[in-house]
Amino acid sequence: MTLSVPAPPAAPAAAPGSGVHRGDGRAALGFLAPSTSGFLLFTLIPLVGSLVISFFAWPVLGRRRFVGLENFGDLLSDPIFHRIMLNTLVFVLVYVPLNIVVSLGLALWISPRIRGRGLYRLLFFIPTVTPMIANALVWRLLYQPGGAIDQGFQSVLGVPSPNFLGDNRWAMAAVILMSVWQGFGYNMLVFSAGLDAIPQSLHEAASIDGAGPLRRFWSVTLPMLSPSMFFAMIMTLITSFQVFVQPYALTNGGPGVTTETMVLNLYRQGFQQFDLGTASTIGWFLFMIIMLVTALQFLGQKRWVHYDD
């Protein structure tokens, strides 16, 4: 089939004077139309729309009023919003490293050709594909007073466990723990695939040179895995800044605001207090934070990410 296609003539010879065919632009537009219209309709227009809304006092019902940067100023001076940003930051700073360590650890554990490797991969991936709401219900049964963990405490130690979901010192830890359990499977698969792609010959060469297992891990496995780690880190960071379902389903942001994150707060402002202006402003704060962090990571990648080419 491919052999019968004649070689394309050299471009300049075919159409002197016009680098591309006149109608090509419109044809390209036609091909681009489906994805472009989707992008416009569902991404760009809402994005610009939310930026516009963030400059208004925009109640769902009632009069809209242009307020300029007031929404941004109000949020920046609101101690509760400070707490909510701190909560989000704590979540990210604890969750992302834990997630990477756990998923990398498990990926390393199942990376040698151990028996039942496929089964382990499947098992570890199950939490990621089960609906988060269902997971949260099960974790609530574990965490609540009189639940499985509490009963374990009572029978082994003779004292009740902390009230994980009702105690402001424990609630965030409870949310993070559930999130790690829920979220490590995806990164584990990424790492697992990355590990498989490291040529065995490198390990062998290092062994011959006298490198022990730890040395091989630091000097061969980790550098070779760094592109996967970079990818996993960026994606996990972005999604963890956007964390919503875990605190929503498990604690509903409580007790107080101890587990309320930025997106949960955005949801509340927009759809429970019907203040779309503030909600859009929070959305833009988050957008700017994520942009900044992602940009920093891309700048920093030169130092530690090694592309083998």
């Binding site: 609540q144 009230n163 101890t258």
Partner: peptide, 9 residues
């Protein structure tokens, strides 16, 4: 009455 938990129940 038992202690309460933060929940969306």
């Amino acid at each position: 009455a038992p202690q309460v938990v933060a929940t969306n129940d």
